[in-house]
Design a protein around this nucleic acid. Structure first.
Lengths: 177, 177
DNA sequence: TATTGTTATACTCTATAACTATA
DNA sequence: TATAGTTATAGAGTATAACAATA
């Protein structure tokens, strides 16, 4: 059976709330205007629920904008980590992105076939291989990073720049450490 | 081929940062102390990355705490929506939680077999069926909701109550509307 | 003995097509 | 003609076991 997949437990919701619930446990919050008929007020008090939905909202846009580059979020993360950490090993990428080694093999193979990365022998460990971006990989990653940075502002149009910075800071406080 | 799965594009990362990158596009941020060797400073400026990691951090704890109840996040969401919206239809749950109808069938069937929900004929539409919690379902959902609410405070131990409220508000601004 | 990269493979999650019975 | 619930199934994503080469 194995441990349940964490990533798979994330789902993508669609629409929002209604009124408040008569629940003794749920924290009372301002429940805004209805929209899709159902009362989702309690779920909207949960950090996990809100963070998941926000992440999925951003990722939906990410998928659309990165389509021209043929990059999924995980591909972008891998390329970006290689770009900023030339010579990084597969094992390091796995640890950082929480990908299991067997599942990274295909991604690396694919990026290699596309000519975006090159694998060089590791200087001190002949088992490992250092990962580097090719010239084309560097160009693609730079374009993709620019796209990601622009996307950052677009998806947070409802927030002021200060609010966005606060949001990112608070999110890092949740998952770092 | 079909549209790429949004939920599946979420991955669970593990450890954090290092130094800053010499990238002309990446917004400059305070890059804190290293920890796992790799430079992840740019990724940590991205809302999607931070929201995903925060969501996964919360969900990891959620999975552990909900194990005694035999509930995955999606099961908890379904039970909670039924609890707060008695008589809700499968179709409504699908729209709200962005689950495709064929994929909800098994979950509903499972909750039914466990005796947690009951399906009653819909008062005005004989195609549909209204979903309700059984007595046992109500007890389990209440316990689970209490657990979720407690978890809310535990996972945000690095935040003040005011910060947590701010965080939830900002997250809702990202995905609502 | 442990670790890197790898293959093979099983399990879970997500998506599409198509059916039935009602509307 | 369209919709609610359902079945069957295909495709992505995620997991474990085991192996060869090297540490």
């Amino acid at each position: 059976m194995s441990e349940p997949s964490v990533a798979n437990t994330l789902r993508r919701p669609r629409a929002p709330r209604k009124t408040a619930s008569t629940d003794p446990v749920s924290p009372s919050v301002d429940t805004p205007e209805p929209s899709s008929g159902l009362d989702t007020s309690y779920l909207e008090t949960l950090l996990g629920y809100n963070a998941r939905r926000a992440a999925l909202a951003v990722i939906t846009v990410f998928l659309r904008r990165m389509e021209p580059f043929g990059l999924r979020p995980v591909d972008f993360s891998v390329l970006t980590l290689i770009a900023h950490n030339p010579g990084v090993t597969s094992r390091q990428l796995c640890a950082e992105l929480d990908i299991l080694p067997p599942n990274l093999v295909g991604m690396i193979k694919s990026l290699d076939k596309r000519g975006l990365i090159v694998r060089k022998p590791h200087p001190s460990d002949r088992r490992a291989q250092g990962l580097h971006l090719s010239a084309e990989g560097k160009r693609l990653q730079k374009q993709a990073q620019t796209t990601a940075t622009r996307l950052e502002h677009d998806v947070s149009h409802a927030l002021t720049p200060a609010e966005l910075e606060t949001l990112n800071t608070l999110l890092r406080k949740v998952y770092l450490r």
